[in-house]
Design a protein around this nucleic acid. Sequence first.
DNA 1: ATCTCTGCGATTGTCTACAATCTACAGACG
DNA 2: CGTCTGTAGATTGTAGACAATCGCAGAGAT
Lengths: 249, 249
Amino acid sequence: MVVRQAPAADRDTSAHLNWRMKPNLPQIKNLSIREQTLDTLREAILTGELKPGHSLIEMDLSRQLGVSRAPIREALRILNSEGLIETIPYHGTTVRRLTRTDIEEIYSMRSLLESFAVEQVIRARNPEHLQRLRDIVEDMIMAGRDNNINTVNILDRDFHDALIEMSGHSLLLSMWQTVAMKARQVMALVNRRNTDLTQIARNHLPLLDAMDQGDIPKAIELLRAHIASAGDLVAEDWQRDSAALDEET
Amino acid sequence: MVVRQAPAADRDTSAHLNWRMKPNLPQIKNLSIREQTLDTLREAILTGELKPGHSLIEMDLSRQLGVSRAPIREALRILNSEGLIETIPYHGTTVRRLTRTDIEEIYSMRSLLESFAVEQVIRARNPEHLQRLRDIVEDMIMAGRDNNINTVNILDRDFHDALIEMSGHSLLLSMWQTVAMKARQVMALVNRRNTDLTQIARNHLPLLDAMDQGDIPKAIELLRAHIASAGDLVAEDWQRDSAALDEET
DNA sequence: ATCTCTGCGATTGTCTACAATCTACAGACG
DNA sequence: CGTCTGTAGATTGTAGACAATCGCAGAGAT
């Protein structure tokens, strides 16, 4: 951590430097401490490393990350407005606790946003879009055969992200990102019962067929069912082991 | 998003203090400078006082408001994640510029969120909800008769806010607030052509009737049309006088 | 004339110290 | 014994100074 600032020259892409520049030099990132802190904390929350209820003390973070409180505070403000943490003035900051209602809301919102997106994508009738989605699902099925749960999850996210992006609706995309973030957090927090990975992947196929046929109502119906069943499973698991989820500190 | 902290006194409900407490003392506000700055700037942006493209210099704001840069920076981070401003590192912060596409997206998103809400509200079948909405519309019609454009606008906002709140979906509410905020900004920026205020108010009545009858598809259809026509009008006006909207600085 | 480099002013990014506020607990007071 | 009061410790809120970076103008080289 505490990646020190990179020299300016590395980021410079003005013409005289690009002249015959050999490619594939790894892009040097010069993110502000605020951004690094933000990314680090957000990732920790989304992966469940920082559990709901966990207390975030600015001074502790400051020491752990080896930076001052100012950029940390700015990062916390952002996380706060993203709804991942809560701050009580002069008292403390904690990772937002989740209720079963929160989870139901997250999935119902996913459903709403995605069905809107799928309608837009179908109307656009862009064959490349459908092909791209098919490719992702195929990879997903293969990863499912290999029982590679991590890859399946990533590809599943890719699929739904791609669907939203294809709608070409930037406001939708930004709201989606908020919701998808929360969904990711929830998924990381529940101990999912083993399910047939291949089956999860295959579940996407009927949706693709409906999209191929341009059948909007059917596609929306399939998508809704797909998300609802995923949401129900997660909500059940949540109920089951919700006792272990709040962290005292 | 934009969940404001309640002042300490509001949160204190311990028994010994509530015992025979005389009411009606004006609540003492102790908002942090960050919150005050946030509210001030956000309001200025939403009312069009700060126009798209206007440059926000931390040092200037600091002098104008008579506070240090730290709380201002935190407020700016929040406005940034709300999508109202944009910051280029080491260069400057400006009020986000709006394109016609932005406006179309704002209204299509409003449409999506509100039709979801109206479905939930109809399903809940709560007569008080419908009565509350009717009351608002009645006031709106009266304000329309008086040609009181400001009151009509406020009541129109109240109506749609109420609709969302009644859905009881807190995540929906938070996304709605983001979108409604942007819509408010857009409305403040266009010089709306005079329209019949009474007519605007009356336009809400068919929707209420459909809700009364529990006719979900019809209600959604009416709502969609209502919002779409509003959006089209605004988009037209935008096109017309978009030249005057960007502020140089 | 054109290109390159260097220094300058403006602006944001970060650090440190100090102030304000909250909670909890101990002790005074009836 | 219960109620109020005040103090201590922890935590967030704010201030002011300094560092880093960017864009640009202008000097100098070709």
